[in-house]
């Protein structure tokens, strides 16, 4: 008996993989059905539905980049403290002192790439008319995931705490000041007042809620850190679950009816 067969027939191996190697038709079906990750797929699929020139692979790449971001992000959290005192210092240390220092590079470039691939995924889904019945609701989920991808990138943009970071977030969040009714420089905010006192001021408007302060500061850093590392990823992961599940329930990758 070869070593390979010995391992394959051992109790340990068979407790993990409850079927023979996926070499014949039956076991190629079983491997999909019995594996948690693989069972996101159907067992069989139409050849043209997975043609690269049809799918552009952009949805799958986006999901893969999300996983890359999760892994590199968790690793980066070991090296990073979201405080005014340390945030920038930790960036310098990551750049200058950590061996094989491409963790932050991979995290940043994969982040940029994810924004691009999620937009291209939307482009493809539109151009193949895949949002049409019965997939309308999954398109809506997809739009939410697009927005969450932007927000993930936006909140992460602040964390290096350099000039690029705080001013990009300042420019981006200044808009919230002009929110109609809810921003203290927005149209109609004067209407929200009680007995002559404005409810919407620079310390209570939409921008303040976003930043946790009147300008981008330590509160903002903390807020964005938690949103970036915990809040938005959790929501995005949940919606991704719904998105993938609905792809299956709505009939798989779209095909001519």
């Amino acid at each position: 008996m070869s070593l390979r067969d010995y391992i394959r027939n051992s109790q340990v191996w068979r407790s993990v993989f409850r079927h023979p190697a996926p070499k014949d038709r039956r076991n190629r079906a079983v491997v999909i059905l019995t594996n948690l990750i693989l069972h996101l797929h159907p067992v069989t699929i139409k050849q043209q539905a997975i043609a690269l020139s049809y799918t552009w692979c952009m949805g799958g790449i986006t999901f893969f980049l999300f996983i890359v971001e999760t892994i590199t992000g968790v690793l980066l959290m070991f090296y990073y403290r979201p405080t005014l005192e340390w945030a920038y210092q930790d960036m310098l240390a990551l750049r200058d002192a950590v061996s094989f220092g491409i963790l932050r590079e991979i995290h940043r470039w994969a982040g940029h790439a994810m924004v691009i691939t999620v937009m291209l995924h939307m482009y493809r889904v539109f151009l193949t008319g895949s949002y049409k019945p019965p997939r309308e609701f999954n398109w809506v989920i997809g739009v939410l995931l697009l927005v969450l991808t932007f927000l993930l990138s936006f909140t992460g943009y602040l964390l290096p705490w350099d000039q690029l970071a705080i001013w990009a977030i300042t420019v981006g969040s200044n808009m919230a000041r002009a929110t109609p009714f809810l921003g203290h420089e927005g149209p109609g905010f004067q209407l929200l007042n009680v007995g002559g006192f404005d409810l919407i001021t620079s310390t209570s408007d939409a921008r303040f809620v976003l930043l946790g302060a009147r300008s981008v500061g330590e509160e903002t850093l903390n807020r964005f850190y938690i949103l970036h590392c915990v809040g938005i990823p959790l929501i995005a992961a949940f919606l991704m679950g719904v998105h993938f599940w609905r792809v299956r329930k709505d009939g798989g990758i779209s095909q001519p009816l």
């Binding site: 190629r28 999909i32 069989t44 699929i45 139409k46 050849q47 043209q48 539905a49 997975i50 095909q255």
Partner: peptide, 16 residues
């Protein structure tokens, strides 16, 4: 084009 050569294939190995 999407209907031509459109056999049902196994996800393992074709997609995986």
């Amino acid at each position: 084009r999407e209907q031509e050569n459109n056999d049902e294939v196994l996800v393992w190995p074709d997609l995986v």
